[in-house]
Every structure is written in C-alpha cells, then in structure tokens.
Write a protein that binds this DNA or RNA. Structure first.
Length: 511
RNA sequence: GGUCCAUUCGUCUAUCGGUUAGGACGCAAGAUUUUCAUUCUUGAAAGAGGAGUUCGACUCUCCUAUGGACUACCA
C-alpha cells in the first residue's frame, strides 16, 4: 500500500530557527518533493510561557530564503487549517478524554511544587523519582480517588493534568527509517503529561500525535532528541486505535559544535565568529542580536547545499547540488546515524564555489548596493565586469569591494611594502617611459596593450617584474590585484595616465 | 543515576564480508605567475579497545570504553 507522502515541519516559536532546525525542514522538504508529496508547516505553540513574538515570522522568512516551499500550513492555509496549535486548542481535550475513558490515561491533581518536592526527596535518598506504575495509585489521581471525588475536584476548579498510563513491563517494538529496529521496556518510561488544565492546552506529545493523525502525515522526520519519546508516541497511536495509519519515523542525527562536545548552540557562533542562524535576529525581550548567514554574505544556495551534506550524502563524489538536484537524489537511507560536527571552513568553501559560478549579471545585481555604499555610481555592465574578473578570489560578495575598489577609484595611499620595494632607483624614471608608451597606444584593449608594452619591455631589456610592479603601484597602490592589463583596459587610457602622473608628482622616491 | 542512540583521516564522509580503505574541507610542499590570489600536482592523515562468527571482518554478534540525546504541567 502506498499513500500520499505528507510530511510536516513543526517548530516551536520560542526564538529564531537554528540551522539544525533549518536542516530538519530541508530534509522534510526534499523528501516531500522527491516523492511528489506535500510539505506542511505547523506551528507548535502549546507552551504559552515560552512564546517569543516575531519567532514565527522569522521561521517563515528563513524557510523562504532557503527556497523551502510550504504547500500547506501557517501562512498558506490548507484543508486541515488552522495549523497553529494554539488555534486548535478545543480539539485536544476531546482526545485526552477519549484516552481516559479507554483506560489509557487518568487525571492527576498534584501541583508542580509537590512533584518537585518528591523529586528532591528521592534525590536526597539517592533514588530517582519516576511518575509511573509504582506511584500513581498513591498520588492524588483519578486512579486513587473515587469518580465522585474526581468530579468534585474538577468542578471546584482544582488544577489538574491528564497523564498517560504507561503500561508496566511491556516491550515496545519500533522501526526507524534511519536507525532501524529499536525496542524499549515500558517499565523504564514514565506517565507523561498529555494535557494541562491550567492553560487548557495539550503538551507536545498529545498535540503532535493528534495533529499528525488529523493532518494525515505519512512520515515524521525530526531531530534525534525525539527518539526517547518514540515509545510513548507508538503507544499513543495504539491507544487511539490509529496504528493502521501511523506515520513512519525518521530521527535525524544532531548537529554538533565545531570543537568540544555537545550540540551546536547560539553561543558557539558568538564565540567562534560564524552564524548559527539563517537570518539576523534581534531578541525582542533582551535586545540581544545574533548573526545570520544571509546578512553575513552567504548565498542561500550555498547554505542549503552545505546543510544538505551535513548528515546526508549521495554516495557519489559530487558535492555541489542545486535544490533540484538534491530533490532528485535525496533519500532517507543515505542519512547518517551519527551526529555531524559543523565546520565553518567548509561552509565558506561552499560559498566560494557558488561565488565562482555566478554570472557577471548576477554579480552586478549583488555588487551594486555595495558600490553605492562606497559612493561609486557605475553601470551594471561595469560592476559585473569588475566582479567577474575578481570573483575567483572572493568568498563572499562583500569581499568584492576590497578586491575591485581600484577599478573605480584611484589610489590615495600607497602600500608601504610595495613602495619600499619598487619606488626607488630607476623605477620612477622607467615609469615615465611606460607612460609615454601607454600614451602612444590607441587600441587600449587588454590584448593590444599587453602586446605593445610586452614588446617594448623586451626591446629595452628591462626587468618585467620591476616595470610591472612599479606600474601596479601607480595604478593600484598596492601589491595585489589581477593581471595588470585587466586594470589598464578596465580604467582606460586617460585614467591610467592620470594615475601615473599622480604618483610621479605626489610620491617621493625612496632613498 | 536510569533509558536510548552513536563510534572510519583533525572535520564531513564512501565502503552495504575479500579494496593499495576512496573523495572533500583544512594543513604542508611543489609548479604556474608582473603582484596578491586563483588554479594544478603531490604529500601527511583513519577503521576506539577486546572477544567471538567466518576460509576471510571496517563491515555481523557480544562485552568494555568514549561521545551524545533524553530523563519538565518545554518543544
């Protein structure tokens, strides 16, 4: 039997979307597209305490930037709307009650404080407190109280929760698309809270299972941190009688810190100077900011490509993939099992690869705003041409200004090292000669200038290095840049002569 | 502490019982070059440890070690 592939990305709006979350979304998207299925965006905002304003918008904009398209969900609607769990709140209580009636769940009246006290007490005795079959009959629950008593407490407004009645000593057999077969004894699990009366909202576990069922989700692709609660989720499907349409699960490996232990966190980025978020973020509460790949000059395609290869590989030696190619190649059984350490250097390498493949037109569009910031007004053609000449040595679009500024503005200072090396001896006099040679050239194209000047250097038996580097000092002001004739052809004859005259009159020769 | 997951060059990874264990990033050396880069070539660099199973194990099983996740009325 094969049913329509329907996957969901279900983040919680508790802050900016982390790059690990983006990867989860990406894998869901690739899987959906690969199998001509649907990609759903569901917002899991069942924790009223941790809600962060702007987080949802951030998530949506991040996915959009990455080219991850949503078929159904928050922002686009769909047949199972609403897709924000806070707007679905009246759905869940019904299902919680259904579980109680079927004997799979029960009311519990303990307060958080009481439970904290019990945990502390157990801890001092060197034990661990587990809310499960060993204690639930002794605590204030609908299992230990009469039906009348329970109804009375609810009627009088006591705070209650619904807990899952985890069976004792049963083996849950599970299958994960990435990890294979997993089995767990239910005695090691506890009675998780499914619904809380305090805010009339379900917890993740209930909401997740109910919504995945209602939204006909076929595959749950999520982070490895969810693996420990998989048995509960299996049991919930069983308790509801939904095992026939239960989705298949795939738990993705974690993204790890570049150095040291643990999973990638915001602080790593701050410390080591690379972004952990797709977009720039400013916390509305604290005003704290965090770098984003987009604002730091990464191309979305490069970011996506890098992320895709962090935990998945095609089995070939290909590393550069467009989104279309990723969709064509992606499969869950080539996702690795172990956590992937994120490496900033590799991210930069990917970006450089994409930079090198950009056309002059694309580069012009990206480069123009930077040129304007520096007060340079040029045609797209010229902007693109300059960028095109230098793109091979750029990693980020923002590198381009340093790399090409001398195409647009004459040097105002001269690099000390180059000056010391070349602005001495016969070189200034030779530069005057070069000036005359250049002044005599009519066809100032790269090829012609190179031919004429080259022949002249040979004829005079001058040192190529001395002449060219002195000229470079005059035109660029530093010991860097592309081939000299790229510069002469770009800035043109008049500007060339102007820059030569400038250094001749303004810079005093060494010694 | 308990439960679960994982373990190949520094890092990302290939290998689905038989390979000189391959590629990429980074690193080093060399070549090219009028500068800085780019590019190219080359090099160093790995199966956590121990038992099995097998003619043969990086690959299968078990144990140990290490790392990680989870262990909230958070997701």
């Amino acid at each position: 039997m094969s049913r329509e592939v329907r996957v969901r990305f279900a983040p919680s709006p508790t802050g900016p979307l982390h790059m690990g979350g983006v990867r989860t979304a990406l894998y869901n998207y690739l899987f959906a597209r690969r199998h001509s299925g649907k990609m759903i965006l569901r917002i899991e905002d069942t924790d009223s305490q941790r809600f962060v304003p702007g987080a949802e918008e951030y998530i949506i904009e991040s996915l959009k930037w990455c080219g991850i398209e949503i078929d159904e969900g928050v922002g686009v609607g769909g047949p199972h709307a609403p897709y924000r769990q806070s707007e679905r709140r009246e759905i869940y209580l019904k299902y919680a009650k259904q579980l109680i009636e079927a004997g799979w769940a029960y009311y519990a009246f303990d307060t958080s404080e009481e439970l904290d006290a019990l945990r502390k007490e157990a801890e001092t005795k060197g034990e661990t407190f587990a809310y499960n079959y060993t204690v639930r009959e002794k605590l204030p629950t609908s299992l230990s109280h009469s039906k009348e008593e329970v109804e009375a407490r609810i009627a009088r407004g006591d705070i209650w929760v619904v807990r899952f009645k985890m069976p004792e000593n049963e083996i849950v057999e599970m299958d994960d698309l990435i990890r294979g077969h997993v089995r767990v004894n239910t005695s090691t699990l506890d009675d998780k809270v499914l619904y809380k009366s305090a805010d009339a909202l379900p917890t993740y576990h209930l909401a997740n299972i109910v919504d995945d069922h209602l939204m006909e989700v076929s595959h749950v692709i999520r982070g490895e941190e969810w693996l420990p609660s998989l048995p509960l989720h299996y049991l919930l499907y069983k308790a509801f009688g939904w095992t026939d349409t239960q989705p298949q699960f795939a738990h993705l490996p974690l993204l790890l810190k570049p150095t040291g232990g643990g999973k990638l966190s915001k602080r790593d980025g701050d410390k080591m100077g690379f972004p952990v978020f797709p977009l720039f973020w400013k916390s509305p509460a604290t005003g704290e900011t965090a770098h984003g790949y987009r604002e730091d000059g990464y191309f979305a395609e490069a970011f996506v490509n890098m992320l895709a290869l962090l935990g998945w590989n095609p089995g070939t030696e290909q590393e550069l993939f467009s989104m279309e190619q990723l969709i064509a190649e992606f499969s869950l059984d080539r996702v690795s099992k172990s956590g992937a350490r994120f490496q900033p250097d590799k991210a930069k390498w990917f970006n450089a690869q994409y930079m090198h493949r950009k056309s002059d037109e694309e580069l012009a569009a990206l480069f123009q705003p930077i040129l304007k910031e520096h007060g340079v007004e040029v045609s797209d053609e010229l902007a693109g041409k300059a960028a095109g000449i230098m793109k091979e040595r750029a990693t980020f679009i923002t590198d381009l200004w340093d790399l090409t500024s001398y195409f647009f503005v004459a040097p105002t200072t001269y690099e000390e090292k180059q000056t010391k090396k070349y602005w001495k001896g016969e070189n200034p006099a030779r530069l005057r000669e070069v000036r005359e040679v250049l002044a005599s050239i009519d066809d100032f194209s790269k090829e012609n200038t190179e031919a004429v000047v080259g022949a002249w250097i040979q004829e005079k038996e001058y040192g190529m290095g001395q002449i060219m580097n002195t000229l470079r000092l005059a035109l660029v002001g530093a010991g860097k840049g592309p081939g000299m004739y790229d510069v002469t052809a770009f800035i043109g004859k008049e500007e060339c002569l102007k820059r030569i005259d400038a250094i001749l009159t303004n810079l005093k020769p060494i010694e």
